[in-house]
Amino acid sequence: MKVLVPVKRVIDYNVKARVKADGSGVDLDNVKMAMNPFDEIAVEEAVRLKEAGSVSEVVAVSCGVAACQETLRAALALGADRAVLVNTDVELQPLAVAKLLKALCDRELPSLVICGKQAIDDDSNQTGQMLAALLDCGQATFASKVKLEGGSAMVTREVDGGLETLSLELPAVITTDLRLNEPRYATLPNIMKAKKKPIDTLTPAELGVDVAPRLKTLKVVEPPTRQAGEIVPDIATLVSRLKNQAKVI
């Protein structure tokens, strides 16, 4: 059984995004990039399923510029078996990525796709759900536990107020939440091994997908900043400020 794991190259989790002075976007020049953290969790989950014997092959996919190969190498170092880069310089929006992944699923026929629930750059939280719709298959978003049994997946999801468990017939799409697992660190031998694993390159045209952006970004600005307030000396002063100045209690 094959699992497909899409991975996105994004700004590193620890880097604070800076808006470009001309308002055209966020400055990514000379900024540290890394695999989207939720996608790392997705790779880890797929690799664990393989280690548990329920999955035979883990294929990592990335869509975007040539530098996404680094992200794919990272996925291979975590334990993916091979990788596919869908190479384009066009700005990819979630619907376009979902269509590329759909076209790839038609070729690869995976039983399961495990995606990160959201990318920490555009914070859209769309691609997995869109892919499930295009594949006309079941979905379990925000997964905190995944169990494969025969032809189905039992997935516990994080919902507002608690947990929900779904049984999905495969093929299906799962999106990962933070607490599904804690991704391993790639070891040096695995990083070396990853260099020898194959990465195929395709283009959107070869997959027959129109990736032209649907949304136009008119401007990007810094949000209004909050001013630091007052450090009060004690609790009595705090309570008095909240009552008499802020009037919130």
């Binding site: 939280n125 759900q129 507002d160 949304l215």
Partner: peptide
């Protein structure tokens, strides 16, 4: 844009072949 909306709405957008604007 709650767990409820985030779960189903992108599926609607994909079926309609339109973009979704989140949040």
């Amino acid at each position: 844009a709650t767990a409820f909306g985030k779960n189903f709405l992108p599926r609607v957008a994909a079926l309609l072949d339109v973009a979704q604007i989140s949040d």
